[in-house]
Design a protein around this nucleic acid. Structure first.
Lengths: 337, 337
DNA sequence: CGCGGTCATGTAACCGGTTACATGAAACCG
DNA sequence: CGGTTTCATGTAACCGGTTACATGACCGCG
């Protein structure tokens, strides 16, 4: 491998000049710069990132924190792939790479410092945290350690941290307004777990939108689910068993919504004629499962892009973290309403 | 940050001894080893990976090559998430981290050397290549550059490379045998693109299984699709338009299979009574879309685990790459047959 | 003409580890 | 008891960059 010294020797300058060509090209005379660049490609010189990191303490890598919670083995993020694509693309424009942090350090998953250690060992410039549906103390340790980080769908904030979410309350309002327009007056909801940020916000937004529409909300029409298929199924059965069952249901997640539609179907009810359903997320399946799920779509790629931008802003300016982003949502109308 | 020299000074030994404690503990006396280890946690010493990499030329990182082809923006891997989880877990056991290689280097996506350069710059120990559904010359450049790598669902092999796939032919045979048992004698197929490895293998396996069962195959009963929903839909329409249309169809991918079922439904045919459908992959939706898709399930996590093991074997032994792995498939029976 | 100021470049220390080789003490052995 | 091994540890060069500071050429100006 060609090193900087060899490139320097061959082009008759000092290593400092070569280094400058790649880091602060403007201080090098046009002539030598070009000569060095040409020679660099000729001999295939590539700067060694480790050496660079060692000297500067910046690695141009950001950690990806995405532990699959061992207590929920089946958990899958509804659109991890879109997020990763957008994230990686946006980061790479600024020369940043993504390092997936392994859960196993030497220590087990209960070691709160495992992410912080990984960040320090690799001199990571920052971290992106993808919600796995449960609170993880190791994530909070990152905040305490002043690591620049941005979280997705997780409300972690601090002097070096910010987060990006969808406009969950606004999305819920979209759903409610849509149902109201369709003539529904008795609207129930299958909420998400209230300890999760999206779960809580969607319920809050739902309540507010109903109030704004001047509609009452029976406490019995609010059921808390778990974001899973079976949870939605069970919740819907409880709703349907009510005497004054709602004519429409806002379900805080598509997977639950599909479970709910199945429950309705099993109960001999037709969607949307007997009961209308609106979901949240717009996962792939939503379009495929008959009669098509009307749902509040999130800006999936937006998560990645926004996260990258927030992180880059922090790293670049070294300033305070940008305030949290709430990505706009849109209503996708399909057959279920 | 505590450095090795500080730790050495404080524990009254030389840096070499400290280094040995972490790399070749067996050559250090029990007593000093323990003393150093204790002091290390006390002062929060963490070895600096960049320095280590610089000295050893091994980074303990492997590159993840997973470019989303710009010519197919909508492409999503059917089970990327499961693969990543398994991969990361299996690698981390051996102290390896995953670095997602950005497509943007400084150069565009047509630069064939972009992965090779990333590998060199970061001293990556190897690479895992996830098929994105199209041939990428930059991947072949990795092979040429003798980078240890293992590919998923892509037939790249060489002195430093191997690959892991499902037993595609065997899976196709499972499907055929199942249909034969159900009494079908006129079986057609919607194949995948023949330039992809899984696409080609599944068709080969299908043909072989039919032959083995002594059933004829009309050339008109073989339609090549593109692994997408709409492609499956279109292919099915062509099949249904035939005079002697098959009574059962083996579809080489679940997404296409769902499109195919929809086409059947639109044509007024009932699945499975009028036409049976078997898919391949077992994606999430397969269970959700009525009447439930019978399909050949791949060992999703197995991809990640097998890839990690193959790579580790190469890195550890420094030997020839292990021969390609073909993961076993299983038939999941649902309502479509 | 001499002086201060740019500008392009060079010198050398430093980042934090690893490791070949050297050293010295203790153990073994005939 | 002297010589050879073995074992634990130390010394110092090296990995490939960055960068504070020094240097010297050149320029404009009073």
């Amino acid at each position: 491998m060609a090193t900087i010294r060899e490139l320097a020797r061959r082009s008759g300058v000092s290593v400092a000049t070569v280094s400058r060509v790649f880091n602060t090209p403007e201080v090098v005379s046009q002539l030598t710069r070009q000569r060095i660049l040409d020679l660099a490609v000729e001999i295939g010189y590539l700067p060694n990132e480790s050496a660079r990191t060692l000297a500067t303490k910046k690695s141009n890598m950001v950690g990806l924190v995405w532990d699959t919670d061992h207590r929920r083995p089946g958990w899958r993020h509804p659109f991890l792939q879109e997020i990763l694509v957008a994230l990686k693309t946006a980061l790479s424009v600024h020369g940043l790479n993504l390092l997936m942090l392994a859960s196993h350090d030497t220590a087990g998953p209960d070691d709160e410092q495992r992410y912080v250690r990984a960040v320090r060992r690799h001199n990571l410039d920052g971290a992106v945290i993808i919600d796995n549906g449960s609170r993880d103390p190791a994530v909070l340790a990152l905040v305490d350690a002043q690591v620049p980080c941005v979280a997705l769908d997780l409300r972690v904030a601090g002097p070096t941290c910010t987060y990006v979410t969808s406009d969950n309350a606004g999305g819920a309002a979209l759903a409610v307004r849509h149902l109201v327009e369709r003539g529904h007056r008795r609207i129930g909801t299958i909420a998400g777990p209230q300890q999760t940020w999206p779960g809580a916000e969607r319920l809050t937004g739902f309540r507010a939108a109903l109030a704004e529409a001047g509609l009452p909300l029976d406490d019995g029409h609010v059921i808390e689910g778990d974001f899973y298929l079976d949870g939605g199924h069970a919740a819907m059965r409880r709703l349907l068993a009510l005497d004054d069952r709602p004519t429409a249901v806002f379900v805080a997640g598509d997977e639950m919504a599909i479970g709910a539609m199945r429950a309705a179907h099993e109960a001999g009810l037709r969607v949307p004629d007997d009961i209308a359903v609106v979901g949240f997320d717009d996962i792939d399946v939503a379009a495929l499962v008959p009669p098509g799920l009307t749902t509040v779509a999130q800006d999936k790629a937006g998560f990645g892009t926004a996260a990258a931008e927030a992180l880059i802003a922090m790293l670049h300016d070294g300033e305070d973290p940008p305030s949290p982003t709430a990505l706009p949502t849109t209503l996708v109308m399909r057959g279920s309403t």
